[in-house]
Write a protein that binds this DNA or RNA. Structure first.
Lengths: 203, 203
DNA sequence: ACAGAAATTGAATCTTGATTCATGTTTCAA
DNA sequence: TTGAAACATGAATCAAGATTCAATTTCTGT
């Protein structure tokens, strides 16, 4: 309850003009970090792309790491929102699995820069990275738990299954979105879904 | 065929003494990079841990990045060797899948530093990272292809399945080896194997 | 025992790039 | 109309840390 905790974050823009500048910086940062990585990218690159002076950067962000973290969190919110919207009204777990996978890959393709930023956060802001995936994993495991108790899917260790399935998606995202996006989203999602649904065992 | 290509790499130790020093440096580098990451770790940390002077480092390595790459490659060789040894004589694909998963997790636990180095290589030496996983994936896909043609496993897109299954293992390795290794290797491997074998669909 | 070759040393160098700050410009409520 | 509060500027600062190198020590073959 000291002076600090009652004062507002003085880095937040107070006017529409400031908000616009901050948005330009975030956008520029996303592109630069995404294209060349955290360490290769310098503040000057970001401000140059945003058409502002270097000092302006520090009007809105404490440090280089802080923008980066902001982008990771933003990606978390956006991804969750996108996928949960796509799953609205889907009650069957297997159906949700299929649509979710598709939505995830689609989203990754449309947000390559942010996708890469999230991956890199493991080595730049590890706590942000863990939060990102832990939050997904919690919800995922919960869904599996519900579905298995309703008899929609096999019983199993839902923690482990959730981590495994997330890993599966993440790698597919890396391979078929970032490295090379020439394969059709459908083909990737369908192949993966067959694996998730039926496993490797014969019929 | 110029002077360079016929001359030996003058960074290679010529004597047993030199070989020992280089080994000390590699070991130290592995520990330091593994513990604090590439960018946090400085050459002075490595040489200090290895009990040599800073200059000695540059007798054996061109640069900081070069040791790092050497460690990634080393991890690749070692992992392949370890797993293929564990799979000697196993002809059934599902059995191989189970044993391979177990071996992988076990190996990750025993080599946390190198495991982390490989993950970080994505952002330090991306080509080395891609080589590492692409080499795994090629072999993996080949195995799946053979097994499915023999009718041991379901048919499916072996490229995609291989990437997906690798991702699954990698994430489990991260979560249950690096983040927290309190869960028994068996429990993780068994749960994941059930998923890989049977999928999520009810019996 | 002696001459090179191989190793080792660590202080000094040198680059890179994040962050600061003193100064100028805009906005807007009273 | 005016004067704070917000914004914006970009050259200068400053620290960090990779890499170098000239001098010194240890080996090794003969």
């Amino acid at each position: 309850m000291n002076q600090d905790s009652i004062s507002v974050n003085d880095k937040n823009p107070k006017t529409a003009r400031g908000a616009k500048t901050k948005a330009k910086l975030l956008e520029a940062a996303s592109l630069e970090f995404g294209a060349r990585g955290y360490h290769e990218c310098m503040i000057a690159d970001i401000t140059k792309r945003a058409n502002v002076a270097m000092g302006t950067f520090y009007v809105y962000f404490e440090s280089k790491e802080v923008v980066f973290r902001e982008l990771v969190q933003y990606m978390g919110q956006t991804t969750r929102a996108y996928i949960s919207k796509k799953l609205e009204g889907v009650s069957d777990r297997l159906e949700a699995e299929k649509k979710g996978l598709h939505a995830f890959i689609e989203f990754a393709r449309a947000n390559k820069d942010l996708y890469r930023i999230v991956m890199e956060s493991q080595f730049v802001a590890e706590d942000a990275y863990r939060d990102y995936y832990t939050s997904f994993q919690k919800a995922y495991a919960e869904n599996l738990r519900n579905a298995s108790s309703k008899g929609e899917i096999r019983n199993g260790d839902d923690e482990v299954r959730a981590w495994g399935l997330i890993g599966l998606s993440v790698f597919l995202g890396m391979r078929y979105c970032i490295w090379d996006d020439s394969k059709k989203v459908e083909d990737v999602a369908d192949a993966a879904f067959d694996l998730i649904k039926n496993g490797l065992k014969m019929g």
